[in-house]
């Protein structure tokens, strides 16, 4: 109990003092995971939209594959991305190993299937509800998909938040690809892992509380955006 209290006090002290090291690590966490979420959304949402409207024979295997890839182990993703980005790998020329860019790649690979699979299911469910209406209004398949994306915007926002949450809480892949280099690639989760390995449990827990706070703020901002949009209605 005392450890948790000490950790909470340490977390408050770190945030109140504007600890430069903490701010740097927190900023990098948000930047890496936020960028990965945006890139993953740009890939996953069109993929989900295509899956919803296609009658192609590859639809079913792709859906199964995406659903299965939601369980991708981060260390395996980290290893594969490490091999791709390593000097002798096919993407070695980019020089992204042990850089935030490499971490963004790893997190993007990790959360794209999650966002695509959940968005596909969300759109499929909505399509069941709207299919007859769209048919009776004579909408084309792509008009229908565009409307579905708009109609499910709040659900899709939750899907994106789930992706962001998965990314920012991930440690295995960013540790392997980023290397946890202080001032370069150290993010909240790798910092927590480091503090734990040093036996600084209170400090590790404090960082964990700050990480939770970051996620809480991001979710609160999303909820505020939803509420603000809802105010347009009487």
């Amino acid at each position: 109990m005392s450890l948790i209290v000490d950790s909470a006090l340490e977390a408050i002290r770190l945030m109140a003092s504007g600890d430069a090291r903490l701010m740097e690590v927190a900023q990098l966490s948000v930047r890496v995971s936020g960028t990965a979420t945006i890139i993953a959304a740009l890939i996953a949402l069109p993929l989900a939209a295509w899956l919803v409207q296609t009658r192609s024979a590859v639809r079913a295997p792709v859906v199964v594959m995406l659903n299965a890839c939601m369980a991708l182990p981060p260390v395996i993703v980290g290893l594969v991305v490490y091999l791709l980005l390593s000097r002798s790998g096919p993407l070695g020329a980019l020089g992204w190993l042990f850089t935030p860019n490499g971490m963004i790649v790893a997190q993007t690979v990790l959360i794209t299937p999650i966002i695509a699979a959940l968005a596909r299911q969300t759109l499929d469910d909505a399509q069941l509800e709207y299919r007859d209406l769209f048919g009776s209004l004579g909408l084309s398949r792509w008009q229908s998909v565009a409307t579905l994306l708009y109609e499910t915007r709040f659900s899709l926002l939750i899907v994106l938040l789930a992706g962001f949450g998965r990314a920012i809480a991930e440690v295995g892949a960013v540790m392997m690809v980023g290397g946890n280099i202080a001032g370069e690639t150290r993010v909240m989760t790798t910092a927590i892992a480091l503090e734990t390995s040093k036996g600084e449990l209170a400090s590790a827990l404090a960082l964990g509380m700050v990480l939770l706070l970051i996620v809480l703020v991001v979710n609160a901002l999303a909820q505020s955006a939803k509420t603000w949009i809802g105010r347009r209605y009487v």
């Binding site: 004579g138 347009r232 209605y233």
Partner: peptide
């Protein structure tokens, strides 16, 4: 008639999440 010349009212109205 073509879809553009018809309208269908459903037993349970299907409404968009808009005003």
């Amino acid at each position: 008639p073509a879809a553009a010349e018809q309208a269908l009212i459903f037993q349970r109205p299907v409404l968009l999440k808009r005003s």
